[in-house]
């Protein structure tokens, strides 16, 4: 047998750290799948929101009822002749009613209210000279306001970025907690196997051989635990309500397409983390033993 194979035999399989490492790695990996999904989803949401809002604008025309049609026609003409505007369309009464229904309810007599007229504008990728357009509109249709959605888009983008930062921070914290647990478990395992260390020292085993025996065991347990936790987490994410079928807060949280491969990295990361933290702990403890 090679020293590697022997090192796997010399530490007893039983011990206090056996379930601690596997269970904590499983729990941490389970949580990490959600944090990873949140991070990926936040990035996707930000991208979707940006794409949906980036090339759209709305012109709100406020005018007395008798001037509304004329003002609207002027605004549409200004928009039609403005470079950077791909299209402009006056929203129908039903469309406006649909927009307001979410806020005011379905039973409100919208016909009786002096509502502004809304014009849905699509910009070209280059976009118009917004400052110049606003000046033209204020000159030709004083009641028209060009809204390029910046005040909506910025908080959404900032919110998505903050959500992603939090998700990434969660991943880092999960990794740190897992490393700490593995270090504690490795210390406990080394302490409870003092006789094993003593015997190995007696027969001339070097520190790296003794450390390898413990590090291999810790790494294996952490990897298996993380693999189980990752699988459970992926199943849980998969089982979340479909965004198309539900309006839950968690709707849209998850992976898409090749994104489902991302959780596969978690057991690998857990293995590396376990290997590094267990090795550092083992050598630290062994340095204190003659």
């Amino acid at each position: 047998m090679s020293p590697h194979q022997v090192s796997r035999l010399v530490v007893p399989r039983s011990g206090r750290g056996v379930w601690l490492v596997s269970l904590s790695a499983a729990a941490m990996a389970f949580l990490a799948v959600f944090a990873l999904a949140l991070s990926v989803s936040a990035a996707r949401l930000a991208q979707n929101w940006a794409a949906a809002l980036a090339q759209t604008a709305t012109v709100r025309v406020s005018a007395p009822p008798e001037e509304m049609s004329e003002q609207t026609a002027i605004v549409l003409e200004v928009l039609r002749t403005t470079p950077g505007i791909a299209s402009a369309r006056e929203m129908t009464d039903d469309e406006q009613a649909d927009l307001l229904e979410a806020w005011l309810g379905p039973d409100l007599p919208l016909d009786a209210l002096p509502l502004p007229r809304l014009i849905d504008v699509t910009e070209t990728p280059e976009g118009p000279d917004r400052q110049g357009l606003r000046l033209r509109l204020s000159a030709e249709a004083p009641g028209a306001v060009y809204d390029d959605h910046t005040r909506w888009r910025r908080p959404l983008a900032e919110g998505a970025a903050r959500m992603r930062q939090l998700a990434n921070l969660s991943l880092v914290l999960i990794g740190a907690v897992m490393a700490a647990i593995i270090m504690l478990a490795a210390s406990a395992s080394l302490a409870s196997n003092a006789q094993v260390i003593s015997v190995l020292r007696l027969v001339g085993a070097q520190d790296r051989f003794i450390a390898r025996a413990f590090v291999w065991r810790m790494t294996l347990r952490a990897t298996l635990g993380a693999a189980a936790g990752t699988a459970l987490g992926a199943v849980a994410i998969f089982a979340l309500p479909d965004p198309a079928d539900a309006s839950s807060v968690l709707s849209g949280l998850g992976f898409q397409g090749s994104g489902w491969l991302l959780p596969l990295a978690l057991p690998v990361v857990a293995a590396v983390l376990a290997w590094v933290s267990a090795k550092a702990t083992a050598f630290g403890v062994l340095r204190g033993v003659t």
Binding site: M1, L9, V10, P12, Q195, V203, G204, A205, F209
Partner: peptide, 30 residues
């Protein structure tokens, strides 16, 4: 220590390994 044989009064072994595995330890760990 690999060139020294040591017999302790209390004879510590790796209790989960067999006698022959314990006896072979000085060779196998190196």
């Amino acid at each position: 220590r690999q060139k020294i044989g040591i017999v302790h009064q209390d004879c510590q072994f790796l209790d989960h390994l067999t006698v022959e595995q314990n006896v072979a330890l000085p060779l196998s760990v190196t």
